[in-house]
Simulated scan of single mutants.
Amino acid sequence: MEPQEVDFAHTEGAAKRRREKAMGLARYVWDRGISGQELLDLTDSTLRKLARAAETNPPSTMETWLTVVELLDQKTAWAQRHPDHPAATPAHRDEKIMWVTPPVQPWT
């Protein structure tokens, strides 16, 4: 009988650590007012810089970033249901422009 190969990236412990990392990243991203779609539109290089700014080692796979997007969507839905709660407003929205370039408005 041959020993089974273990997929260490998908063990219960790895999933827990991935979720913890995603939570920290989602907090940082939410506080800057970056949406899930805007996050997905960022380049790999920018995502790595964003993770480092959040004092987190950059995720090695997109799986963690997709979890961040899910968490952002949940937080956005919660914020819409609780608009008067202090946590429903990103604390550092002014820093969004450091990560997400606003669309260029055409001359009219």
Rank of each mutant, 00 (worst) to 15 (best):
N57W: 06
D94T: 12
E95V: 01
R48V: 15
K96T: 06
E95Y: 03
A15P: 00
P58T: 01
L25S: 02
S60N: 12
T46R: 11
D73E: 13
T64F: 04
H92Y: 10
P59V: 07
T101D: 09
I97C: 10
A79M: 03
T89N: 03
A77G: 04
A22C: 06
H82L: 04
P102M: 03
V29P: 00
E5D: 13
Q37L: 10
R17C: 04
V104N: 04
S45V: 10
D44P: 06
E5M: 06
S35R: 11
L25I: 11
R93P: 00
P102A: 02
Q37F: 06
D84P: 02
Q4D: 14
Q37R: 08
P102C: 03
M1D: 09
T76P: 01
H92V: 02
W78N: 03
E70H: 05
V69L: 03
E20A: 15
T43L: 08
K49L: 13
A51S: 08
A26M: 07
T61P: 04
S45M: 05
W65F: 11
I34N: 02
E38F: 13
M98R: 15
R48T: 15
T101W: 01
G24Q: 11
L25Y: 05
A51F: 05
E95T: 02
D7W: 09
H85V: 02
P86T: 03
H10F: 11
A77P: 09
E2D: 14
G36N: 10
P3M: 13
L71G: 04
E38I: 11
Q105N: 05
V69T: 10
A9Q: 13
T43R: 11
T108G: 07
A87S: 15
M23D: 05
Q74M: 11
E63T: 15
P3E: 12
L42V: 09
W65N: 00
V6A: 13
P102D: 05
L39M: 05
A54M: 07
D84M: 06
R32V: 03
K75V: 08
G24K: 15
Q37W: 09
I34D: 03
W65S: 00
M62K: 12
A9W: 14
D41S: 14
Q37D: 11
P102S: 00
Y28L: 09
I34F: 06
M1N: 04
L42Q: 12
A22G: 03
T101R: 09
E2L: 14
W78P: 07
Q74I: 09
P83I: 01
L72I: 01
D44R: 15
R17A: 14
P106Y: 00
V100P: 08
N57K: 10
G36W: 12
G13Y: 07
L50R: 01
M98W: 15
D73I: 04
E38G: 08
H10G: 07
A15V: 08
L50F: 03
D84S: 11
G33E: 12
R52V: 15
T61F: 09
S35E: 09
T64Q: 04
Y28M: 06
R81W: 03
E70R: 10
K49F: 08
P3G: 08
K49D: 14
W30G: 01
E95P: 02
M98I: 14
L42P: 05
A79P: 10
E63V: 13
